[in-house]
Amino acid sequence: MLEHRRRFLDAAARGLVLGGMAALWWPAAHAQPGYNVSLEQLQDMVGRKFPRNVPVAGLMDLTVQAPNLRLLPEVNRLGALMAVDAAGPALRRSHTGTFDVEFALRYEASDRTLRAHQLKLGRLDFPGLKPAVSELLNTYAPALADQSLREVVLHQLRPQDTAVFDGLGLQPGPITVTPKGLAVAFVPKPL
């Protein structure tokens, strides 16, 4: 009887300790544990990947500058407005324009990164170009978006960012765009 009571008290004490630790990550009774990334952190990481050069069928080269990211929580996506410089044999001089795109995010477990995917293209806008040349450039807009942003790393979680969750049998799951940044939920690992 004494041994049974001691085991019960040990289990209860462990439960209280683990429950107290869990409360640090699960502050509300039914809230999921998570990891937050601010817009500033995203902007800093993506800025390191630019400028990028995109050749357009031997006619010109487009240089895409670092995007200005914006949060779109109402559609759970990010937007990016990028300055684009166009120069080459098809143009008499260099022209500057903008390119707008929206995208979703996905988690890549192999390197613990948050990446852009599911791009929704906006238009290339070059105010100084003739309409026919602008239309030609817009023909290449999908390739430009694909080469400039698809699978671009927006954030990388460090091993210490996921260590506690790994120990609890959790892994990054759904990514939600909020008015302040990204919220990465942690979900149970598959068995």
Rank of each mutant, 00 (worst) to 15 (best):
residue 1 M to W: 10
residue 4 H to G: 10
residue 7 R to C: 07
residue 10 D to H: 07
residue 11 A to V: 06
residue 16 L to S: 08
residue 16 L to D: 08
residue 17 V to Q: 15
residue 19 G to Q: 07
residue 21 M to V: 13
residue 22 A to Y: 12
residue 25 W to C: 15
residue 25 W to Q: 14
residue 27 P to S: 09
residue 27 P to C: 12
residue 28 A to E: 15
residue 29 A to G: 06
residue 34 G to C: 08
residue 35 Y to P: 02
residue 36 N to D: 09
residue 36 N to S: 10
residue 38 S to G: 06
residue 40 E to P: 11
residue 42 L to F: 07
residue 42 L to Y: 06
residue 44 D to K: 02
residue 46 V to C: 01
residue 53 N to P: 11
residue 53 N to I: 12
residue 55 P to S: 02
residue 55 P to L: 04
residue 57 A to F: 08
residue 65 Q to W: 04
residue 66 A to M: 01
residue 68 N to Q: 13
residue 68 N to G: 01
residue 69 L to V: 06
residue 72 L to G: 01
residue 73 P to E: 05
residue 74 E to N: 06
residue 74 E to Q: 02
residue 76 N to P: 09
residue 77 R to C: 00
residue 80 A to H: 00
residue 92 R to I: 07
residue 93 R to F: 05
residue 96 T to G: 05
residue 102 E to R: 02
residue 103 F to G: 03
residue 104 A to I: 03
residue 108 E to R: 15
residue 114 L to E: 04
residue 115 R to S: 00
residue 119 L to E: 01
residue 120 K to E: 15
residue 121 L to N: 10
residue 123 R to M: 00
residue 123 R to C: 03
residue 125 D to G: 05
residue 128 G to A: 13
residue 129 L to H: 00
residue 129 L to D: 08
residue 133 V to G: 00
residue 138 N to M: 06
residue 138 N to D: 08
residue 140 Y to G: 00
residue 143 A to C: 03
residue 144 L to Y: 03
residue 151 E to Y: 05
residue 151 E to R: 01
residue 153 V to I: 09
residue 155 H to P: 11
residue 162 T to M: 12
residue 164 V to H: 11
residue 166 D to R: 07
residue 168 L to R: 14
residue 170 L to N: 08
residue 170 L to C: 05
residue 175 I to Y: 02
residue 181 G to A: 10
residue 186 F to Y: 13
